[in-house]
Design a protein around this nucleic acid. Structure first.
Length: 688
DNA sequence: AAGAATGAAAG
DNA sequence: CTTTCATTCTT
């Protein structure tokens, strides 16, 4: 069904539409512009030359779209996100990623310029380095490229996804000069030819050897692979046998690969190595499932041409739970990997600090977990029969037994969730920063657990080459340099300040005043009484910041009813600079440190008004729902609706009051609100 | 593949 | 002004 592909347009039309061809982009890495970062390099000269040459050419060649394009450098905010997302997720385990992003945005918004400085600086540096490495780089590739190389149009055949890990970096466009443009030095893993994979496959196979403990062993292998990639002479393996060596590129690829968990399919599925030549990540299955299952890593590297029609956004406003659940039922089970699942559970256990590999008891526990896994949706065998697969697909995903550490990590039931966990905890930066966060904050010995497992150590040092591991990377000189570069970069990134959530809570409250909008701004007072849903639709068609401000107040003041309206997209509708985020304050109080306490308090005595501004409602209605289901906070039955409404009104008034009080001069909006609700402004002064 | 955010760059 | 696309990863 997904065979439609990458674009909403029919495949045929796809090529003719003026749309920019989908491009494969690889994350640009400062490694690729060592010069720019003024790191020392000696024997890299040629590479450098090559580099410049190529980048120049790149413009002219301009190339078939199959050519990968360097990805944009991250801006300050993105760096910030990258650095803090794990923190957010840690604080709000049940929050989905979007919610996390929102929070991150809020955090970012309250940071002061000087606090952002490090990030903006690095972003700039990052960008400068990038531009140096990619002179003439265009943010938006020229749209005038009618030429569509079929090579990247793998759409028609999802099964053979092309992992075009060519000598990717833009500079590698030298590869184009090589006769075989079409058979570019790309690594097509789907059709991987061991001979072509050369050293890489050797590497992978090398990692295969024999570690008895499968889970830990797999981890070892991963680490070992990465390590050997940097240490062994083989690591200079060239992906493009004939073309330019691209040694660096190969290394880079491997780094990328390991970084994004690309290799996991191999390393964690030794059982399927035999099939590697056909489909390393997922042995072909007779069912359709194998055709469109896409490893997350693939997603990462897949080009992201996002044709987003904004029109669509209106239509999509309500994602019905029904359809989503239906989707879940229909969801095909990935050829997931047993070992992977084992890792998942291990991760879960470790993340909760409950597992220490040396502890027999915990080993047992892990085994238990593993024993349970087969029943869950998450675990699927690669070689599982189609029938079973289907059966599994229908399986309820709400098996409580599977929820390993719901409290700590949120409910991870679905396979996808597991993969998400894998991302977060295992491969991606998320894990590293998360662990780091744990260290920084002196929290539970998650890291120690990982370290004991002797896994994270390797992967950690992989991206974070610690000074304590001098021996690493000693092999080849270039590798050494690369290691240094990597180290430098990682260091830089990791040295970016990581703000504690508490910081933002305080800040948030400090600025939890409401609007920056001009005091004299006119607002149609009728808006105040418009049902949120209506207002929402109005706002959707009106990007005026004025309305947005109204919206914000609505959202804040009318918390109880705002839940349903939060369903829709809350995409930015006005310049963020014009809006001060309304930060959660459970009761509108100004106290800074109360945030945490309030939550606890809430648990103790769930008074109605305390539900009015549940922290979570600000971010995700879904979450809210989840909370309700797990811990139903039922209202006392003796509260009539009228009484509740009254309470709510007063609550709102109080909160509105706070807002007024926090301002030297009451905002027009607030005044209007009071006026509309026939509440004398004196109410505030009295109260104070 | 959409989406949640900010921001740089380009159309 | 509007679009695109960098980040993450869940749905």
């Amino acid at each position: 069904m997904k065979s439609g592909g990458r674009s909403k347009e029919p495949p045929v039309a796809g090529e003719i539409t003026g749309k920019r061809p989908k491009r494969k982009c690889l994350q640009w890495h400062p490694l690729l512009s060592k010069k720019a970062l003024d790191f020392s390099e000696e024997e890299e000269e040629d590479d450098e030359e090559e580099l410049e040459k190529v980048s120049v050419q790149k413009d002219e060649v301009e190339e078939d779209s199959s050519e990968q394009r360097a990805r944009r450098p991250m801006n300050a905010f993105l760096l910030f996100c990258k650095r803090h997302r794990s923190l957010v997720r840690q604080e709000h385990p049940r929050l989905d990623n979007r919610g996390a992003t929102k929070i991150l945005a809020d955090w970012w918004a309250v940071l002061e310029p000087n606090e952002k400085q490090k990030y903006t600086d690095m972003a700039k540096e990052y960008k400068d380095a990038f531009m140096k490495a990619n002179p003439g780089y265009k943010w938006c590739p020229t749209t005038s490229k009618p030429v569509k190389s079929p090579s990247y149009q793998t759409v028609g055949n999802p099964r053979k996804k092309v992992w075009s890990f060519s000598c990717n970096s833009p500079k590698d466009s030298t590869a184009k000069k090589v006769p075989k443009t079409n058979s570019l030095p790309q690594l097509n893993f789907a059709m991987a030819d061991p001979t072509k994979m050369g050293g890489l496959s050797m590497l992978l196979l090398a990692g295969e050897h024999a570690l008895t403990n499968r889970e830990v062993g797999a981890c070892h292998r991963l680490g070992g692979l990465i390590k050997s990639a940097f240490m062994s002479p083989q690591s200079s393996l060239s992906v493009a046998p004939e073309g330019k060596p691209c040694k660096q590129s190969a290394l880079f690829q491997l780094a990328e690969v390991s970084r994004f968990g690309f290799c996991l399919g191999f390393t964690l599925n030794p059982d399927h190595y035999p099939h590697m030549h056909t489909s390393p990540l997922c042995p072909p299955s007779p069912t359709s499932t194998s055709t469109d299952t896409t490893p997350p890593q693939q997603n990462r590297h897949a080009s992201r041409v996002k044709k987003k029609s904004k029109k669509k956004e209106a239509a999509e406003s309500n994602h019905s739970e029904i359809s989503s659940s239906a989707k879940q039922v229909n969801k095909k089970c990935n050829h997931s990997e047993t070992n992977m699942d084992s890792i998942f559970s291990t991760i879960e256990a470790v993340a909760s600090g409950a597992w220490a590999p040396t502890d027999d008891k915990n080993k047992k526990r892990m085994q238990t977990c593993l024993g349970n896994l087969p029943k869950k949706k998450c675990k699927t065998k690669c070689n599982i029969s189609p029938a079973k697969e289907e059966e599994r697909g229908k399986e309820s995903h709400s098996d409580p037994a599977f929820e390993l550490n719901t409290e700590n990590r949120g409910s991870r039931k679905s396979e996808r969730s597991c993969k998400g966990a894998l991302y977060k905890t295992l491969v991606s930066e998320g894990m590293l920063t998360s662990l780091r966060a744990n260290i920084d904050r002196g929290k539970k010995g998650a890291f120690r657990a990982f370290d004991d497992a002797n896994w994270s150590h390797e992967s950690w040092t992989m991206s974070n080459i610690g000074p304590n591991n001098p021996k690493k990377l000693k092999k080849s000189k270039s590798k050494d340099d690369l290691g240094k570069l990597e180290e430098e970069f990682e260091k830089k990134f990791n040295s970016l300040p990581q703000f504690s959530p508490v910081t933002f809570d305080k800040k948030g409250i400090a600025v939890s005043t409401l609007i920056k909008a001009k005091p004299n701004e006119k607002v149609d007072s009728r808006l105040w009484n418009i049902p949120p849903s209506t207002l929402q639709s109005i706002l959707k068609n009106n990007s005026s910041k004025r309305y947005l401000n109204v919206w914000r107040i609505h959202e804040y003041v009318q918390a109880p009813s705002s839940m349903e309206m939060l369903v829709g997209s809350q995409k930015r509708k006005a310049r963020k600079t014009k809006i001060t985020h309304l930060v959660r304050t459970a009761d509108g109080s100004v106290s800074a440190d109360k945030t945490k306490d309030l939550n606890q308090e809430q648990d103790k005595k769930p008074l109605p008004q305390q539900n009015l501004c549940n922290e979570k409602r600000c971010y995700s209605p879904r979450v809210e729902e989840a909370d309700r289901s797990t811990e139903p906070k039922e209202l006392p039955t003796f509260f009539s609706l009228a009484a509740l409404a009254e309470v709510a009104a007063m609550e709102n008034a109080h909160r509105m009051c706070n807002l007024l009080i926090l301002h030297d001069t009451p905002t027009t909006h607030a005044q209007q609100w009071f006026h509309f609700h026939n509440i004398p402004l004196g109410f505030c002064t009295q109260r104070n």
